[in-house]
């Protein structure tokens, strides 16, 4: 009898829980973001502030930038955070998105085992680094998932006149997120292209090192993109606008500038709206 009572109250409690969730949904904003922004912990820090200021709770769906842009195109998102400039500009040009604002940046790194068998440290450019890796048939873990990072891999391979789908014996396509791809690279002692933020979060665990020098072709710009309001309920379009303005707010930009200093000893992102600096 006691068991039955406990069971019934559990069922009742979960029903209440499920319902309360449903009520809150009407206040929400569907934010589709690239995984690195979520995995770095930045959103977990910013979203509560956004909710406090506006009363809007953002629901976060983290996928690769390619998938995020497709979701935006199909109207399955209110606002996007992505880092695939070419695809973003195409989305705006197609009319599916109305506003693309770059709001922060960091850079990609080519990481690998400290022994550096392919000589990436001596490479003259990121494209040259890729050529060295391919020429020595060294192992390289590719994201292979049409994410922003994967698109950059493809761009670097093309710049180096290499087959964009790899093609050398050591080329591995993981089809996985940045974190898992870094784990695979660490286990198999391979080279990999990663955004600096996720790399720093995993560095201790995987024992790989940054081997590349900063270069323009490794610049990684994150943008906030509003979907065509005609595709959204008016209230959601309004919230998307609020969210875009929120990210450009000087106080939030300062917070982005500080983010990561505590955990990694250095900031993970550079805000683009704090002082006058060139924007892409």
């Amino acid at each position: 009898m006691t068991h039955l009572r406990i069971f019934c109250s559990l069922v009742a409690a979960s029903a209440v829980f499920a319902c309360s969730d449903r009520v809150a949904e009407e206040e929400d904003l569907l934010l589709v973001t690239t995984t690195s922004v979520r995995d770095s912990g930045l959103l977990a820090e910013l979203l509560p502030i956004f909710q406090e200021r506006t009363g809007v709770r953002a629901q976060v769906v983290a996928v690769g930038s390619g998938a995020a842009l497709r979701m935006g195109r199909d109207g399955n998102a209110d606002v996007l955070l992505t880092h695939a400039p070419e695809g973003e500009k195409a989305l705006v040009a197609s009319g599916a998105a109305v506003s693309r604002v770059p709001f922060m940046e960091n850079h990609f790194v080519i990481a690998g085992p400290p022994e550096d068998p392919a000589g990436v440290r001596e490479a003259s450019s990121p494209a040259d680094a890729m050529r060295r890796i391919a020429d020595s048939s060294a192992r390289f873990v590719s994201r292979g998932d049409d994410s922003g990072t994967h698109r950059r891999e493809v761009a670097l391979l093309k710049e180096a006149d290499l087959d964009p789908s790899g093609g050398w014996p050591g080329f591995l396509s993981s089809g996985a997120g940045m974190g898992q791809s870094l784990q695979i690279a660490g286990e198999k002692r391979t080279y990999i292209l990663s955004d600096i933020g996720t790399f720093l979060a995993f560095q201790k665990r995987i024992e790989l090192e940054v081997l590349s020098q900063p270069a323009p072709s490794l610049r990684n710009v994150y943008s906030v993109i509003r979907i065509d309001p005609a595709k959204l309920e008016p209230v959601r379009a309004e919230r998307a606008e609020q969210f875009q303005a929120f990210l450009l707010d000087p106080e939030i930009q300062r917070q982005i500038a500080e983010f990561g200093r505590e955990r990694f000893g250095r900031p993970l992102f550079r805000p683009l709206h704090l002082e006058s600096r060139p924007q892409s």
């Binding site: 996928v63 690769g64 998938a67 979701m71 591995l172 993981s174 089809g175 996985a176 898992q180």
Partner: peptide, 26 residues
Amino acid sequence: VMAVGGNLEGETRVLTTAILMYTQMG
């Protein structure tokens, strides 16, 4: 199999991990 296989193309990618990957890619 995702955790220990890693979904590597041509090595450890099986039907379930491929389905998950293509779903996430849209």
